[in-house]
Each structure stands twice: as C-alpha cells, then as structure tokens.
Design a protein around this nucleic acid. Sequence first.
DNA 1: TCTTAAATTGGAAGCGCTTCCATATTGACT
DNA 2: AGTCAATATGGAAGCGCTTCCAATTTAAGA
Lengths: 351, 351
Amino acid sequence: MRVKIADVARLANVGAGTVSRVLNGSRNVSPETREKVEACIRELGYMPNLVARGLAANRTGMISAIIPAIGYTQHAEVMQGLSDVLHENGIQLMIGHCGYSIEREEQIVTDFLERRPDAFYLTGAWHTPQTRRLIEASGLPVVECSNLTDNPIDSVVGYDNYEAARQMVHLLHRRGHRRMAIVTNAVEPNDRMADRLEGYLAASRELGLDMDDLVFRYQNSFLGGGEAVGHALNLPKPIDLLVCSTDVMAVGAIFECQRRGVSMPDQLAICGFDDLPIATSINPALTTVSVDRFEMGRQAGQVLLQRLAGEAAPHKKIDVGFTLRERQSTYAASTGGARPTIVPVETVPLI
Amino acid sequence: MRVKIADVARLANVGAGTVSRVLNGSRNVSPETREKVEACIRELGYMPNLVARGLAANRTGMISAIIPAIGYTQHAEVMQGLSDVLHENGIQLMIGHCGYSIEREEQIVTDFLERRPDAFYLTGAWHTPQTRRLIEASGLPVVECSNLTDNPIDSVVGYDNYEAARQMVHLLHRRGHRRMAIVTNAVEPNDRMADRLEGYLAASRELGLDMDDLVFRYQNSFLGGGEAVGHALNLPKPIDLLVCSTDVMAVGAIFECQRRGVSMPDQLAICGFDDLPIATSINPALTTVSVDRFEMGRQAGQVLLQRLAGEAAPHKKIDVGFTLRERQSTYAASTGGARPTIVPVETVPLI
DNA sequence: TCTTAAATTGGAAGCGCTTCCATATTGACT
DNA sequence: AGTCAATATGGAAGCGCTTCCAATTTAAGA
C-alpha cells in the first residue's frame, strides 16, 4: 500500500521508467538491470497499483460481464469458465446481474462504463437500443453469449437453441412420441427461450403434429414445471410427452408426476433443456439438451483476449454445439418404454 | 470516453474543482452553480472516469469477494444479497473463486490487493497465515461469512453451524429416530462442514447414542449422497436416519433411495443442511436447516458500508440465525411416520 | 458602516503509473 | 578506426480526477 515505483527505482538506482519496463516485461531491459530491479522489488515487497496503471495505460485489466442472476447454474458455469481464462491473463471480471431485464442491463452497462473495462460480456442478444449505442460508441470488444444471431454487436459465442429444440422433437417423434406439449417461461422473456419455442413449433409443423395450442406458459421454476404437469393431465385429449424449455421446469414436472403417481415415461414422458447436474441423478434420469457451458465461457474469454491483443477478426461467431442426451424420462429406441437405455444420437458439431 | 471534467468546467465557466464538487455532492456549491454545471454535464454527456477518481481519492468503490465457486447456490445467493446492497451505494463487487483452497484464496487476495479494493468479503474463517497478514496489513474492512468465530479478522456474519446440527439431532431424536449416521465431505474441508460434524457428535454424546463410528465421508455431490446410502444400507446394524451435511448430498441420497425402493422416512429417514429450493420440491420434501442467505449477504454489505463510513465498531459479529425445517423426509411429531406434516420448531433468534 | 466568520470558488499539486523522447551505450560491419 | 543501427536508460509529461489552500464574495453581527 505504501511502497511505489519511485522507491524501487531509487533503491535500484535506475529510473522509474526502467522499473515500469521490468514490471511489464518489456524487451528493452538488460538482464543485469532486470535482475537488480527484481531484487529491489522483492526486498521492498513492492506491489503494483493497478488503479494507477489503469489510468496511465488506459487499460484496466477488467472485463464487465452481465448475466441474469449470479445463482443460476447455467450462467455461473459460463462465468467460471470465462473467469478461469481471463485470470490466467491477469484480467479480472466485474459481474453484474440484471434479472432478465434489459432496462436493468442498460443501467449496469452505464455504471460499468464509468469503470473503464477493457471489454464486455453480455448474456443474450436482446438489448435496449441505448445499450447497443453505448457499447458501440465505447468501441470496446464485446462477446454476446446467446443464440448465434446474425446481427451481433461484435462477437457471439453460443449454440443454436432453435435447432436443438427442433432436433429434440424429431428424435422423440422417431422414438414414438406423438402428442406433445411444450412448457415455456411466462415471465422474463429472452431470446434463447424464444428460440427454443420456435424450434419446437417448427418441428411440430414439419411433422404435421398440430401442437400449436399446446404451448403452456409457467414460471421457470420447480413449481412452474409442477403446475404444467397439473395442466397437462387435465387436457381433454391427453399428451404423451411434455417438452420443458429448461431442466428446472422438467425437474419440477418429474417431482409432480412422482407425487401424482404418474409413471414416466409410460404415462407421460418428459424432456428438458440444459443438462444440469441433477438431470443424471433424478429418477427417471432426464432426457435433455447438453451444452458445455464451461467451454462456452472459455471460448468467450479466448475471443475477448484475441480482441484485446488487437486481432480484429470482425464479427466472430463461435458455435460450441450441443448434444441430445437421451435418458429414462422418454422412450428410447427399441425398448418399448421399459427402462430404456441411452442411445447415441446425432450432434451438431463444432464449426 | 472522451469528455472530461476540464471540458465541463470550461463550458460552465467554472473551475475543475467546482465540477468535482458538484459530482460528489459537496455541500459547498451554490444552487445556481450546481445547476449550471449539471446542465453542462448533460449537454456534453459527461461520464466520470472512476479509475482516475480511484487514484486521486484513494477509494475505488470496489469490494473484493472470494467464494469457493460462483455456481454454488449458497454462495451465489449471498453474493446477490451483498451485491444488491453495495450497488445501491455505487459500489461494485470483484468476485474471485478459490475452489475451497485457502492457498488459492491467498493468491486471489494478493491479486485483488493490487486493484486497491475498499474492503474484503471472505468465505469462512480458515485462511493461510499469509492471507491474514496481508489483509490485516492492508487495514481494509473485512467481513467473513462463516461460523461466528471468536477470532475474526474484523467482522463476521453468519450463524452457528455447530448449534444447528446439534439441535437437528436433538429434534429428530425427540421424533423417535434412534440410530443415525452422518455424511460429511471427503474433500475440500472447511470450517462450516467441520462445525456441523462437531455439533452432530456433541448431540450424539449428549443423548448417549454412540454414533462415533458412523461418520461417512463422501464427495459433496448428488453422487456422494447416493454412495452414502449404499454404504448405510449395508451396515450390519441398520440405521434409521441419515444426516447429510448438505442438501446436495441429501438430494442424492433421496434419489438413491428411490432407485433402491427404500421407503422414506419409514425405512430410512434423511435430513440435510442449507434448505436449497429443491428441498421443498423433492419427494419426500427434505427436512433441513434453513438460513436466509440473501439476508446474510445484505448484512455483510451493511457492515462493510458502515466500516467504510468510518463507524469502527471493532469486531462486529452478526448472527443471522437459522431455522429447522421439518418436512416429510423424517418422522414428524404425532404422525407415526405417515405423511407427516410440518411442525413449528425452535429457532435461534437474531441477536 | 465596519468587522469577522462563513460560504464559494479557482487553481495547483498531487495520486502512482506508462510512455515517449532524447541521450548514451553497445556491437556489428566496413 | 569509423559508421550506423540496435539496444538501454533516465526523466518528463501526462492519464482524469480529488483536495487543499488561498482568494474572493456574501452574510451576519456589532
């Protein structure tokens, strides 16, 4: 807190600039000088002041990230991957949570800009016009973690939610499921959920299933999933598959079926989206869409690091792909429904 | 990014100091001047540079927080509460994750100190000597979120894990459970888990239950909880209650019992610790210890804000208390075990 | 009306660093 | 030896802000 570059410089009998060069690993320092300076740094227990560095160098070594909520597994995992990559490069994360509100996101962007981050990480590709304006005006590198939108601010990392939902419906249709409904979120709309719904509806149309009126909207929570089951069981014409837009709702649905003595997948099959850790533990294990979210975070980090290093590949788009995980909560191929085993299915590969 | 205080000052025809005083709400500015300056700020779209302010004022408006992992619900909830309180006061959080390693924690503290935070939030009260030395030398306010240790660095916010475990055992003993075992974590030891075990063993001794050899160690995960059930069912002398040190393990245990057709709570009762959202949804609903973690975060934030405001009540200790939640995974009073209903139980009140 | 204290204000001096420029030194070729 | 480029180095000039001090203005008493 007290010893500064000037003190080190004085002790080492060199100029402040030289100490700075040693600290920043500049090539233009003789080995002897470097060693001498490093010894003095150790002797004095010098600790750089990154605030001062940030001001002088116009580079803070901080990256702003905005996610819906800190406690949501999906986003937390991405943050962990992102943070790991950045940490290795001496960069810290500044995390804000906007609770799925793009107005709140705008506020956070405004606040964060005052702290002069070197880059931005945003969740989703839906923002207020002002958010987009602010960020574009700042000229900072940005990565949006989302669908692979065609109109990104800068770069996007993500996977195709639409296609994942679409493929899931096709797969389960091949497995014998015929009449299905989807549960999507009633509040906090966002682009990823919207795309999942679109993909589902597209598949439904392709298969001629006529399920347009079977879109349930409940809160994205265990409770919401449970309520959807209640609704589903009261339908005049029963369904045999409930497609949940998130694993959280799917888990809630499974619990509700257990409570009501509904057998899965025979009486009602259930699938989810996200492949949370619980999806493999629950009974029956949950058929769902799996994405490597740590990897998403790491990729996002890599993109930002490249951007910061000046490699300006405009509009980079990174597809981390997804995998359909077929488990016991839906019929699997060739088992007639009893204790189905996992069957390998097609995957959208990395581009 | 470009307009600075000097520009505002020039336009408003005042000194830079005056603009600064307006920005920081100093009392010594005439209303007319203030208004004029504010108009110019708006006109130019001036946005303060908090990096420069941090350097000049020796106050960054950032607080460092270190938690085991971003994605663990317990800690994420605390962060959310903390972040909310700080945000209202224009303070940002700098979050690092140490993965339960105090060596890694030390590294993060070292890194964070270079960014000159105004305060620290630490998880737990177990740190390396060097961590403690560094933080004490920095003279910054600290709050540890943990047990209510008697030897805090500065302030502590938390609840009594020992007492919670102890009371849980006493309660379940009154409900008729006699032979029990505890599952605790095999890796990543930490003070809170240790205290829970201690409390459990203390109660066991008080009740003369002789359960010292029934301490299982498994990974703190769904899988670990499941394995513990496997172990428990193979005991020569069967147990009737499995006390899990975390809800995650308890949920894993419940799933495993479902898979094995073990009826709960009749054949095996299960209780947990943390009261995660899933505890109320799962079948049977999980008896557990509940703590308001958002509130813990908010309290931690309040303490830090007070400290920053200069109110130096040394060694503040804040007990947020806990509540035993009795649910269907254990016998409840007066029901003989069948579909027990929730019974109000004693709570350790806020101090 | 004259003092004196309080309220305002301008402006300079940093905060601790990076970076540019000028200078000094070295070494490789002629 | 002499030349020129490459390599090292010191040091000053900021980066954009806060804050202190001195100066000025205003208000309040006497």
